[in-house]
Amino acid sequence: MSYKLEILNVTKTFNSEEGEIKALEDVNLSVNCCEFLCILGPSGCGKTTLLRLIAGLDYPSSGEIILDGKEVKDPSPDRGMVFQEFSLFPWRTVIKNVTFGLEIQGIDEEEQYRVANEYIELVGLKDFKNCYPYELSGGMKQRVAIARALATEPAILLMDEPFGSVDAQTRNVLQEELLQIWKRTEKTILFVTHSVDEAVYLADRVAVMSARPGRIIECMRINIARPRKRTSVEANVIREKLLTLLSSESLRIG
């Protein structure tokens, strides 16, 4: 069986004034089609770096990243990315943010708006499509960012702690909505987070990363039926396991 995305022996080193910093060391990861995979790790472990490599925003020092059988070399709309925050273009309205990728592809305007309206509806922002980003709450902005990333119909959706800066209640709602979007669009999602709760609630599988240099130390399948309950006993058991793994890692950088 072939994978949607394969990360093969990827290493990334940065050159800084203090010399070489190894951000990622020999990372191997395979993601199945339509899978929801969370990358979980302590802060500074290189999980964002890994996501940027997959997006093509940076190059691995060695190793390969293969999407649908082709090596990733540059950024491309076949890998949609949702950033932590402040990624919306503030000079464009909600709908113009969502049409951006389509506009770049030179699709005719009528079609742009048809597709954009569809995704705006999907994320529940129909009444706000002519608003500017400054008029939206943090959670709404991230919804727009999701719609924008989906509008170009990427093969995979990369999400970099997208709900990290919204309040806890909103985050729960957004997680739930994301799962529904995932179900409806059947996308493959790679979701970076440092929150164990978030990973356990969302993921089919959780890839746990070590402290720097980042490696995948464990890939854990979350065998909890959906819809999941955040407070269930089985969720707690998995949380416990992940927390133990992470705390030993956090201590290592201490």
């Binding site: 093509g56 950024p75 709309p77 890998r79 990624s87 273009f89 170009t152």
Partner: peptide, 24 residues
């Protein structure tokens, strides 16, 4: 982040980046 977002959305030339992101 705006530049990165534009790159992931398919902007692949300096000219387009100027017109669609840097200038506005």
């Amino acid at each position: 982040t705006w530049i990165d977002a534009a790159l992931t959305l398919g902007v692949n030339s300096n000219g387009t980046m100027f017109r669609k992101v840097i200038f506005p």
